[in-house]
């Protein structure tokens, strides 16, 4: 029986056949239900191991949960209040921010420069690109250990080279600023090439006639760079800054492995380079305290920190003169 699509049944005139109802039902099923089948595997795993833990962290941070004790209690915002007075926490925040500042800003400027240099008619261009991307391929563990050796106090190569210039025996690992610098060098070594390639891609997408117009107007190459390249690159710069921020504020592996004798992720004998992520790890897994509740509060503060700094970055960079 033919049915009009708005539900009213209609008796078809004699001689009019209708196509199979089964095919129609199958099609409705295919169009309406099958999309969910395609996203289901993703969401099932994602919810189980991705979303649920995120939410649960918030809950755990409001308890005094502890791996060692079988019972725990809801304590409200007590953990957060404790954090505010926790000097180790703020020390970690300071370290994290310090390292981030030293590593991000120079790194992105270097990446811009590198991209600018790569954006020419080079011979062996793939070779150069591959060379600067190589650090990305190495693992964080390898980087941290290699550089820890290079920055070693007595036998490190860095000190040897500096010694040739009359600077002697820098205790990279022991000092605060010096450890920050060493760690920043590691981060910069790893990411400059990668970011340079991203900038390079964006640079090559800039239409050539913008440069031609600028050249005709009398702009020298450097002014062209400032007035054409940088504004057109602004969304890419925003992207790399935000990604660097998110990654940089989460720093863990390099400082963790910088310590000569792993003393439970304290970040140096004086906590001089303990990052927030390390403090989280210390409180939850390293020290024999296993304070999950407290560590969860630290995790949320880390998230907050990243969100705030990313927002600030975004607003600041937006003020770069945008492309006309």
């Amino acid at each position: 029986m033919a049915k009009m699509s708005d539900g009213a049944a209609v008796v078809p005139p004699p001689g009019v056949r209708t196509a199979g109802a089964a095919r129609r039902r199958l099609r409705r099923f295919d169009l309406k239900v099958s999309p969910y089948a395609y996203v289901a595997p993703f969401f099932l795993i994602f919810i189980a191991f991705g979303l649920f833990p995120l939410g649960y962290t918030a809950y755990v941070s409001l308890t005094d949960r502890n791996l060692l004790s079988p019972t725990w209690h809801f304590v409200g915002l007590h953990n957060y209040a404790q954090l505010i007075h926790d000097s180790y926490f703020w020390n970690a925040v300071e370290n994290t921010l310090g390292i981030w500042v030293i590593s991000t800003l120079p790194q992105l400027i270097l990446a811009l420069l590198l991209a600018h240099l790569l954006n020419t008619g080079l011979r062996a261009r793939t070779l150069f690109r591959a060379a600067v991307l190589l650090p990305q391929v190495t693992s964080l563990v390898a980087v941290a250990l290699i550089f820890a050796q290079l920055f070693g106090h007595d036998y490190g190569l860095v000190n040897y080279v500096l010694g040739l210039f009359g600077i002697h025996h820098v205790y990279w690992e022991a000092g605060r600023l010096s450890s920050w610098i060493a760690l920043s060098v590691m981060v910069m070594w790893r990411w400059t090439g990668y970011n340079a390639l991203i900038y390079l891609a964006a640079m090559q997408a800039i239409p050539d006639d913008l440069y031609e117009a600028a050249a005709i107007d009398g702009a020298r190459p450097f002014r062209q760079f400032l007035h054409v390249t940088v504004p057109m690159l602004r969304p890419t710069i925003i992207f790399t800054v935000i990604v660097s921020t998110i990654g940089g504020l989460q720093l863990f592996t390099e400082p963790y492995l910088f310590e000569p004798l792993r003393q439970g992720a304290t970040g140096g004998s004086d906590r001089q380079y303990q990052t927030v992520a390390m403090y989280l790890y210390e409180k939850a897994f390293a020290s024999s305290e296993f304070k999950f509740g407290y560590a969860s509060a630290i995790a949320w503060c880390l998230f907050l920190l990243i969100a705030v700094i990313s927002a600030v970055n975004f607003l600041v960079i937006r003020r770069i003169r945008s492309a006309e």
Binding site: A2, S5, V16, R23, D30
Partner: peptide
């Protein structure tokens, strides 16, 4: 696309809801 109201007939049969491959 599917009609909101009304009928489409091909070769004398109503084809509303029939998949494209069967029309």
């Amino acid at each position: 696309e599917e009609a909101t109201r009304g009928e489409v007939m091909i070769g004398g049969s109503v084809v509303n809801g029939v998949p494209p491959m069967d029309r």
